[in-house]
Amino acid sequence: MAARRVLIVEDTLELGRMLRSALLTLDPALEIHVVPSAEEALLDVSRQGADLMIADIRLPGMSGFDLVKKLHQRFPQTPCILITALTEEGLAQRAQEVGAVRFLRKPLSMNTFLDAVAEVLGMPTAPPPPADTASSTGEETPRLAARLGRLRQTLNAHAVFLLDDRGHIVAQAGEWLPAYFEHEWIPPLMAALSAGIKVSRLIRPGPPQGVTALKGAEVDLLFAPVGVFALVLVVPANESVVRLPLAFEAVLQAAQEVARILDEMGVGYLTVTTAPPPPELPLTLPPGVDAEVVPVEVLPVEATELQPLVESLEQPSLPADPQAIDAFWEAAVKDEAVSLLTPEALTYEEARRLGLAPDSEAEESTENDNE
């Protein structure tokens, strides 16, 4: 029996990898492919097919809703699960209308996510983790969403976000997500995080540790590095300043636990997810041919040789008005003093005077002889 194929459509690379790692716990034989856009997903399914598609609603270009509709026009039997971090009402109804078999909100509960996938694929649900997977403190290793939720509850925060190195929301606890957050807050926040990481490397080796707190009129902002990721908290501004040391310790501890969870998931949170530069190919020459290095000095360029080019570039350009351009050419045609386009060319009269062309009398005698 061929391995079942699952296609994940998620523009946040790290989240796609996390979902892939989670699905492999259901069945290591699953063939799982991650693509960042709906357009690539349609191309992938048309070439290789899929037993299940898991897609985010908000994607670059075509949305997840449009993806499901177009997919079912060609492959009506392919089930789809839609996920989103959007909080607006009516999304579940729209997902059902376009034909999605499941609708899940971020931050994802991995147990719920895995149960939904197992049910759609007709697989047994994931068993609970064995007792020997507990940490050295005797507590069960917390899942990412649960840990963010616990931190939010501890500090009475509006929301807690985990951002990857490109500023994409990987996980979230809380519904506080205004429209301006991703476009106006995240870019300068990531710049501040990058600067803090550089300073941290100057004062201590290893992964950066620290918490940055900013006081606001309505909300306070706290963020801490998790490798090159960012743990961000939005806290009500009226919280007592006396709790600030508690917040620092709680955020630091949460950042360390999140790093451990990401490490167990195989997420490269310590490195920036950029493609490596292509290797430089060595220059190969045919056998017996030696490369000759020509110094710049053997090809001198005199400044006087470039003077005509410089003067031509300094001449004013023609006006852009079409009527003015026509008037310019009409005046040029009527002007008898206009020089030839090719100064080295000779007129017919000049050629005849120099003996390079026959005169009219010679032409007439030749014509009479031919008659």
Rank of each mutant, 00 (worst) to 15 (best):
L262G: 02
A291S: 06
A247F: 13
P286T: 04
M265K: 14
T273W: 09
Y269Q: 05
L285G: 05
E257M: 11
L270W: 00
L270D: 00
A247E: 01
Y269F: 12
L270F: 00
V267F: 11
T273N: 12
E280T: 09
A275T: 15
L252H: 15
P277Y: 05
A255S: 15
P282V: 07
P287Y: 02
I261T: 05
P282W: 09
T273S: 13
P276I: 06
L252P: 01
P287Q: 07
L244M: 13
T284P: 01
P282C: 10
L281F: 01
T273K: 13
L285Q: 07
P277Q: 05
Q253C: 02
A259R: 15
A250I: 00
I261Y: 04
A255I: 13
L285I: 07
R260Q: 13
A275D: 14
V251L: 09
E264L: 14
V242C: 00
A255P: 14
G288T: 08
V272I: 11
V251S: 05
A247W: 09
T274E: 13
G268K: 15
A255H: 15
A259S: 12
V242Q: 14
L246A: 03
I261L: 04
Q253N: 09
P278C: 02
A247I: 01
I261K: 05
V242G: 05
P245T: 06
A291I: 05
P287E: 03
T284M: 09
G288I: 06
D290Q: 08
E280G: 02
Y269C: 06
R243K: 12
Y269G: 04
R243C: 00
D263C: 07
S240V: 03
Q253W: 06
L252D: 14
P245N: 08
P277S: 06
E257R: 15
D263K: 15
E239I: 12
P279E: 03
P287C: 01
P282N: 12
P278W: 01
P279T: 01
Y269S: 08
A250L: 00
G266C: 01
T284A: 11
L244E: 13
P282I: 09
E249K: 15
L281N: 01
L281E: 06
G266H: 02
T284R: 15
V251R: 10
P287D: 04
M265P: 08
L281Y: 00
P276W: 09
L252F: 06
A254I: 01
L252A: 14
